[in-house]
Write a protein that binds this DNA or RNA. Structure first.
Lengths: 226, 226
DNA sequence: CGATGTGAACGCTTTCACAGCA
DNA sequence: TGCTGTGAAAGCGTTCACATCG
């Protein structure tokens, strides 16, 4: 299936767009947009000017009807008999997803997972700028990640406030996660992406997403065991 | 929300259990079982003999009705007026998820992400034994991961066949993923967990799950941009 | 003609609300 | 009495099927 999702985010998923009443966009649709954006990159690299919903379906593993429905939530970008203009659609998706804004990201926890995320295709130089990194391990502090010196976690709160950090990615051990989040929230962060396998509490004005890397392996295990 | 899921797995999610007709278990339920299993560990460490659905709800972020419905798919483990016996329920969940079987895992791609996964709580010594690791980078081959020497990717096919590897975790660059998967499939692997941001093709007898780490950040970005 | 955009039907999940049992 | 287990209802998301239009 897809990625493993866990827990509960805060805040609604509603959204209205430019003109007129727009139906509420399902969270599942938003997650698929991310994939459309990625595969459009490869289609664009191939030099194709247009794609059909059928092609996008086979490239993503979704259905053609899903593709058309998903895109139609945001307007009518397609030409009947032709398909979607690749470059224009990709640009539009970037705007919808907000990944054309250069969000300022703080990374807390610079272990293997933190470093892997920064290097993951689609993270850096893709609308997300990791502008600060923090860790509690003295042997890591002072080293560099994405060109940034790693600072002690104690510096997080002031950094979020002073350096306009929009989003914090938490890749610390579960036991340390709530404390990290409390500091980030106190300093006014707007969104948190949590990889620690623990349930975090944040005020409703802060967007929270959880990723539990164990969920998908266990899902596969269940499938095999069945 | 939860983990980012992408693409499409192969194979059905059906499952019947011991005696009698059992309703089909929703995939969403299976993914939540994973979380129940985890939080039951902390409840057990606290020495609580029983938990209510209400408590499990607040520990996971799901609703009490969801908890009861999810568990009821597999039988009646609860005592009315009391709740669920923590240790027994946890053990039962391990059996249902199949994480009490010591699946033999092969890790292909020993970069930061691969190393992070092996170290992630709930991976190793939790029903998953990483018994072999592979990489194409000569500077990594011969180093150790989880006590195993890293071997060249060319050794994958024979290893899967000769060492009864059940599942392969793919953390190689997107461009190399399909080739790795083809080898694993040819050698008879039963399940694949893919972290490369690309759509893989496998025969329907092979279980495939995809995790795209970019999906959840982009979902948060969308929420902020809204 | 060909592929989009979309009502309407369908099926899957969640939620409600309470009967039933320890 | 308290909390589970579960019919029934409600809510979402997907799929179908086709009118529509470039």
């Amino acid at each position: 299936m897809d990625v493993a999702r866990i827990g509960r985010e805060s805040g609604p998923a509603k959204r209205t767009d430019d003109i007129g009443q727009r139906r509420p966009v399902p969270p599942t649709t938003v997650r698929r947009l991310s994939t459309y954006y990625r595969v459009l990159g490869t289609v664009q690299a191939d030099g194709q000017p247009n794609v059909s919903s059928e092609t996008l379906a086979s490239l993503t593993g979704f259905t053609a009807a899903q593709v058309r429905r998903d895109l139609a939530y945001f307007g009518s970008f397609g030409k009947r008999g032709v398909g979607y203009a690749v470059a224009a659609l990709r640009q539009r998706l970037a705007a919808i997803l907000g990944i054309d804004r250069g969000w300022r990201i703080g990374l807390v926890g610079v272990g293997n997972l933190g470093r892997a995320l920064v290097a993951y295709p689609g993270f850096n130089n893709q609308g997300f700028d990791v502008v600060a990194a923090f860790d509690s391990d003295a042997s890591v502090i002072g080293s560099r990640v994405n060109g940034q010196f790693v600072r002690p976690v104690a510096a997080l709160e002031n950094a979020v406030r002073d350096e306009q950090i929009d989003m914090v990615i938490v890749t610390v051990p579960a036991a340390a996660a709530q404390q990290v989040v409390d500091q980030a929230v106190a300093a006014g962060v707007r969104a948190i992406l949590n990889f620690a396998p623990t349930q975090l509490r944040v005020p409703s004005r802060v967007q929270l997403s959880n990723v539990d890397l164990a969920v998908e392996v266990e899902y596969l295990s269940y499938s095999l065991a069945g």
